[in-house]
Simulated scan of single mutants.
Amino acid sequence: MVAHNISQLRGAAIGLALALLTTTLVGSCTDDMHSPDLERADQLLPNRNEYADSNLHTQAQAKLVAGLYDSRLDLIYYDADRVTPRLYFTGGDAIVPLTANNNGWLQLRVVDFHTQFMPLYMSINMKLLLTDTPSDTIRLAGKDGSVHTSDHGKTIGLPLPESDDAEMEGFYIKSKGEIYAIIDLMLPVPMKIRWHGKKQTPTP
């Protein structure tokens, strides 16, 4: 009886020792597979608030410019350097909304701008930064805009081009409630849109 108990205790002790050894080995292997940078990820990873949600101190200008714009959009073909206009393709009218963000930037969104003579629908989405000037204007500048084109399934073959690098330069005239801007679509074909918009309800 005593020998049996001793045998059981010895078996339990060996089992416990094996379990501890296994746990130690697994823990060591796991630690070796983890990067030490995980312990300081908060220092290494970018803080999204610093570049996406920072206060730009342009809230007053954004509210002044925000609104719906009766717009004329003209599609222009440029030279290879995207500097000199070569051909004025077509144009169309659209209502273009500009939405103010709490951080002081504007969101430009053109949805399904349909050109007159080309079976092309285009959507543009862009964040606009503002710079007030001493005169009657507010400068508008946008980058990293997204452009999607479509002909609603009529094209056979290669898909129509898209871009996530569209840029815009322009200005808003406070006294008239009007916007003048050039939007570079940054598509493989050097196309730009000339935008003239008049605010539907001018800011008092």
Rank of each mutant, 00 (worst) to 15 (best):
D74E: 11
N103S: 13
D184S: 04
F117G: 12
L18E: 07
S71T: 10
K176V: 11
K199A: 08
E167C: 01
I76H: 01
L68E: 05
V26K: 08
R40C: 09
D79T: 09
I183E: 06
I14A: 12
K127M: 05
G153D: 01
I138D: 05
F171E: 12
E162S: 12
K154N: 14
P119H: 10
H114E: 06
H4Y: 11
Y172A: 08
F171Y: 15
H34S: 10
K154G: 14
T203Q: 14
T22Q: 05
H57W: 04
T99P: 00
M126E: 09
D132L: 12
V147D: 02
L187K: 13
D164E: 07
H57F: 07
M1K: 11
P190R: 07
P161T: 08
G145D: 04
L108A: 06
F171T: 04
Q200E: 12
L185P: 02
Q107D: 04
A66W: 00
G67A: 09
N125R: 13
D151Q: 11
P202W: 11
D165T: 11
K199G: 06
P119C: 09
D165M: 01
P159S: 07
N55L: 11
G15Q: 11
S28Q: 04
Y69L: 09
A100I: 02
T30E: 03
F113I: 07
T24D: 06
N102G: 10
F113P: 04
D74W: 01
M186N: 13
T22K: 09
L21K: 05
V83P: 00
T133R: 15
D144H: 15
Q61L: 13
N125C: 10
V96R: 00
A13D: 02
